[in-house]
């Protein structure tokens, strides 16, 4: 850490501390000797709650930084989350897994491969020692290992881990789930780099259709739910995400994955207008769900133009549905 971006570190530490420092003091200082059993119990409970809050805050800060591509800045926050997780859950709890994986991702992204490898080994060790570890957890580990191997340039091993990732995700969430499609996306990337373009293309098609149908379903669900959401209390600590059509992670992943595929489709030597239109349609739906109507309209119209060139229109109804929604949307008073 002796490099020039020490200022960055400082800024990040501050940014995490801004959220956590009031809570940090009581967790670090010893409490005055509690007088009663009940008080002592309450004290420990409060401490635990604060620690968990710190873990959440640090974790989501790190996560957002990683999503933004600021891996170096994400490292301290992720480490923070890990330390508190160890304090709360012990050193070989499954609960440490997300922190280890995030930390590994941040390190690998910042170019610190040996460090990343070390964190991944820790995560692997935890899973190996947990007899009834769920496939949902294992698939995340394999995803991280696969990405790490791909970053190292060890493509065969990367494919092995990503294959495991896809298999486990398919077993847990279903064959066409977006969880499984994440693994496919990274596999496609590896095949692409191996110059196996036909396989990569076939996989990208798979990913696109997974997202396409997922977003279509979300869109339809959103339209069916009457917009009578109760006022969320300012005081509620937990952010209510259950009513959102997409989780934050899904939003970020969707934007990233679909944009990457769109780039590839648009730069391909042989154009497949049908496929490109499908990606555009999916992206338009995503932007619509994220309330970015102008962007959604632009993408939707682009998809529409592409489909018009095709001799036989491939089921343009969902696209027409989306476009109709947007033309109605601005005029209707919300």
């Amino acid at each position: 850490m002796a490099t020039g971006d020490k200022d960055h570190h400082k800024a990040d530490w501050v940014s995490i501390h801004q959220q956590t420092c009031q809570l940090l003091i009581p967790t670090r200082t010893s409490l005055p000797c509690p007088t009663t059993e009940r008080e002592r119990k309450r004290g420990t409970e409060q401490l635990l709650r604060r620690q968990k809050y710190i873990i959440d805050a640090a974790f989501s800060t790190a996560q957002e930084l990683v999503w933004a591509g600021k891996h170096e800045e994400a490292r301290p926050a992720a480490l923070h989350a890990l330390r508190f997780s160890i304090e709360v859950y012990g050193s070989d709890s499954l609960q440490l897994l997300p922190a280890y994986l995030l930390l590994a991702e941040a390190c690998a992204g910042a170019g610190h491969l040996p460090e990343a490898s070390q964190y991944l080994s820790q995560a692997e060790w935890i899973i190996l020692r947990t007899p009834d570890c769920s496939a949902a957890v294992q698939h995340k580990l394999h995803r991280s290992l696969g990405l790490f191997c791909a970053a190292k340039g060890d493509f065969e091993k990367a494919l092995y881990h990503l294959a495991n990732d896809v298999y486990l995700a398919s077993s847990t969430f279903g064959l066409t789930s977006i969880e499984a499609s994440g693994g496919y996306f990274h596999m496609a990337d590896v095949f692409f780099r191996q110059n196996k373009v036909d396989i990569a293309n076939s996989l990208y098609t798979e990913v696109t259709s997974a997202w396409h149908s997922f977003l279509l379903k979300s869109l339809q669900a959103q339209q069916q739910v009457p917009k009578s959401r109760p006022e969320t209390s300012v005081f509620t600590e937990d952010r209510e995400v259950s009513e959102e059509p997409l989780t934050e992670a899904q939003q970020v992943e969707g934007i990233r994955v679909l944009n990457a595929i769109l780039d590839i489709r648009e730069q391909a030597p042989t154009q497949q207008p049908g496929e490109t239109a499908r990606v555009l349609h999916a992206l338009a739906m995503l932007h619509y769900l994220l309330m970015d109507v102008p962007k959604a309209r632009e993408l939707g119209l682009k998809a529409f133009e592409l489909l018009k060139q095709l001799p036989q229109q491939e089921s343009p109804e969902p696209l027409g549905y989306l476009l109709a929604l947007m033309n109605v949307e601005p005029s209707s008073t919300k």
Binding site: L162, A163, N164, V166, Y167, M187, K196, I199
Partner: peptide, 12 residues
């Protein structure tokens, strides 16, 4: 078997 298929790109 599944993993063997996948790692060779036989996702279908």
């Amino acid at each position: 078997i599944c993993i063997d298929m996948l790692r060779q790109g036989y996702h279908k």
